Deep mutational scan, measured.
Amino acid sequence: MEVRTIKVFTTVDNINLHTQVVDMSMTYGQQFGPTYLDGADVTKIKPHNSHEGKTFYVLPNDDTLRVEAFEYYHTTDPSFLGRYMSALNHTKKWKYPQVNGLTSIKWADNNCYLATALLTLQQIELKFNPPALQDAYYRARAGEAANFCALILAYCNKTVGELGDVRETMSYLFQHANLDSCKRVLNVVCKTCGQQQTTLKGVEAVMYMGTLSYEQFKKGVQIPCTCGKQATKYLVQQESPFVMMSAPPAQYELKHGTFTCASEYTGNYQCGHYKHITSKETLYCIDGALLTKSSEYKGPITDVFYKENSYTTTIK
């Protein structure tokens, strides 16, 4: 009895394709271990004539594949690729409408935090270190965002349907971005203890939790000093293409032309909904596939993004 075979390709990165001759009487799992086709788990399936010449994702289970996976995804987590594939199996079914010149995501599976993050990423200057993220990001900007969303979920250790947080998501993504040249110098002034300067680099240099107003941050924000008295913390120097200011959701007025974009969060910790506000020729609110415009805006804002380049204080 002759062994019926077909020729397929296996890959971990969709760049390096490895030619395989597979036995049609055995499952993919018996031949390769966990195997995925377009995100779908085909591990328990036997090869079919229609699979001839198709590319299958496999887990990096030998040295060659491990090197290829690390170079593309910059992670050695053995569960990463499987999590990416199972997320992709959902995100490829989502709709990605162009809204006001940006790629958004039609609401499904509690994905409003991903839509808000995706919209924000198209408006701030950011370059990702893992080629996987950078490639998928370019495709997302062009309207094909399924891979990018699935990668975000995998890097953030999230599953489809789980509630997510924009600030946490951005923080994970910033860790995989090139923020080497970003720098922030802060000064804390206390009447009792004097003053202390701190220099922050990388992710810490672009994120701040405690106030939404970048102007206020430049002037000074009140913080408790270690001595128990009130101290003032203010920005001395900022070198970065953008800054992200966050605070627990509270009524906040966004003035046209003073910011790049913002995240609105309605609801409580267990259950809520994100919308995205962007400042173009007027203010726009993007909620999944829905767009509304207004000249002014007041609502429960939790993150505001500002364009920056270089700032030095005039406070002496």
Rank of each mutant, 00 (worst) to 15 (best):
M1I: 07
E2V: 09
V3L: 13
V3G: 12
R4P: 12
T5A: 12
T5R: 12
I6H: 03
I6Y: 07
I6G: 08
K7Q: 12
V8Y: 04
V12K: 08
D13C: 02
N14S: 14
N14Y: 12
N14Q: 12
I15S: 13
I15G: 15
L17V: 10
T19M: 13
Q20R: 13
Q20A: 11
V21T: 13
V21C: 12
V21E: 12
V22S: 09
D23G: 10
M24N: 00
T27V: 11
G29S: 10
F32L: 14
P34K: 11
T35K: 09
Y36L: 00
L37F: 12
L37W: 12
L37V: 11
A40V: 12
D41P: 12
K46I: 13
K46P: 10
K46D: 13
H48L: 13
H51Y: 04
E52C: 12
K54H: 12
F56D: 04
Y57M: 13
V58L: 07
L59K: 07
P60Q: 00
P60W: 09
D62H: 11
D62A: 06
R66K: 09
A69I: 07
A69S: 10
F70D: 11
E71K: 04
Y72L: 09
Y72K: 11
Y73I: 06
H74I: 09
T75H: 03
T76V: 11
T76S: 13
D77K: 05
D77T: 04
D77G: 01
S79K: 15
S79D: 13
L81S: 01
G82K: 15
G82Q: 15
M85A: 05
S86I: 13
A87G: 14
L88C: 02
N89R: 13
K93A: 07
K93F: 07
W94N: 02
W94S: 05
W94I: 06
W94C: 05
K95D: 15
K95E: 15
K95A: 10
Y96M: 00
P97R: 13
Q98E: 13
V99M: 11
V99L: 15
N100F: 05
N100H: 11
T103V: 13
S104V: 06
S104E: 08
K106G: 15
W107H: 04
A108L: 01
A108Y: 06
A108D: 02
N110F: 05
N110K: 01
N110D: 07
N111M: 09
C112S: 07
C112P: 08
C112H: 02
Y113P: 05
T116P: 06
A117N: 01
A117C: 11
A117M: 06
A117K: 04
L119G: 04
L119S: 03
Q122A: 01
Q122D: 07
Q122H: 03
Q123K: 06
Q123P: 02
I124M: 01
I124H: 04
E125Q: 08
E125Y: 00
K127N: 12
K127H: 11
N129E: 07
P130M: 03
P131F: 03
L133V: 03
L133I: 00
Q134I: 05
D135A: 08
A136G: 08
A136T: 07
Y138E: 15
Y138P: 11
Y138H: 14
R139Q: 11
R139W: 10
A140V: 13
A140M: 12
R141G: 08
R141T: 09
R141S: 08
E144H: 09
A145Y: 01
A145V: 07
A145C: 06
A146S: 11
C149I: 12
C149P: 05
L151V: 01
L151N: 01
N157S: 07
N157Y: 14
K158D: 04
K158N: 00
V160Y: 01
G161P: 01
G161T: 00
E162T: 05
E162Q: 07
L163P: 09
L163Y: 15
G164V: 09
D165E: 11
V166M: 11
E168H: 15
T169N: 01
T169K: 00
T169Y: 05
T169D: 07
M170Y: 00
S171D: 12
S171W: 15
L173P: 01
L173A: 00
F174V: 03
F174C: 02
Q175V: 05
Q175F: 03
H176K: 06
N178P: 05
N178V: 06
L179T: 08
S181A: 13
C182Q: 06
C182M: 01
C182Y: 09
R184G: 14
R184I: 00
N187T: 09
K191L: 10
K191V: 09
K191E: 15
K191T: 14
T192L: 05
T192F: 08
C193L: 04
Q195R: 06
Q196F: 11
T199S: 07
T199H: 09
T199P: 03
L200N: 02
K201C: 10
G202A: 06
E204R: 09
A205D: 06
M207N: 03
M209L: 05
G210S: 00
S213M: 08
S213G: 01
S213V: 05
S213L: 02
Y214I: 08
Y214V: 09
F217T: 07
K218A: 01
K218G: 05
K218M: 04
G220E: 02
V221M: 10
V221Y: 07
G228K: 02
G228N: 01
Q230R: 11
Q230H: 06
A231N: 01
A231M: 02
A231I: 00
K233Y: 08
V236E: 02
Q237N: 08
Q238G: 07
Q238Y: 00
Q238H: 04
S240C: 03
M245T: 00
A247R: 06
P248N: 15
P248W: 15
P248C: 01
Q251M: 15
Q251L: 09
Q251S: 09
Y252E: 08
K255Y: 06
K255N: 09
H256C: 15
G257Y: 02
G257A: 08
T258A: 10
T258C: 08
T258H: 10
A262C: 00
S263K: 02
E264D: 05
E264F: 00
Y265Q: 04
Y265M: 05
T266E: 09
T266S: 13
G267R: 15
G267P: 14
N268R: 06
Y269P: 15
C271G: 15
H273N: 06
Y274W: 08
Y274E: 07
Y274T: 11
Y274D: 00
K275L: 03
K275H: 04
H276S: 07
H276W: 13
I277D: 03
I277S: 00
T278P: 02
T278C: 09
S279Y: 03
S279V: 02
S279W: 05
E281Y: 01
T282H: 09
T282D: 12
L283E: 13
L283I: 14
L283Q: 00
Y284Q: 13
Y284D: 06
I286Y: 06
D287V: 11
G288H: 13
G288I: 00
L291A: 15
L291W: 15
T292N: 12
T292Q: 10
S295M: 11
E296V: 14
E296R: 10
E296Q: 14
K298I: 14
K298R: 11
D303R: 00
V304E: 00
F305S: 06
F305G: 04
Y306E: 02
Y306L: 04
Y306F: 09
Y306A: 06
K307G: 08
E308T: 12
N309G: 10
S310P: 02
S310R: 12
Y311E: 12
T313I: 10
I315H: 15
I315L: 15
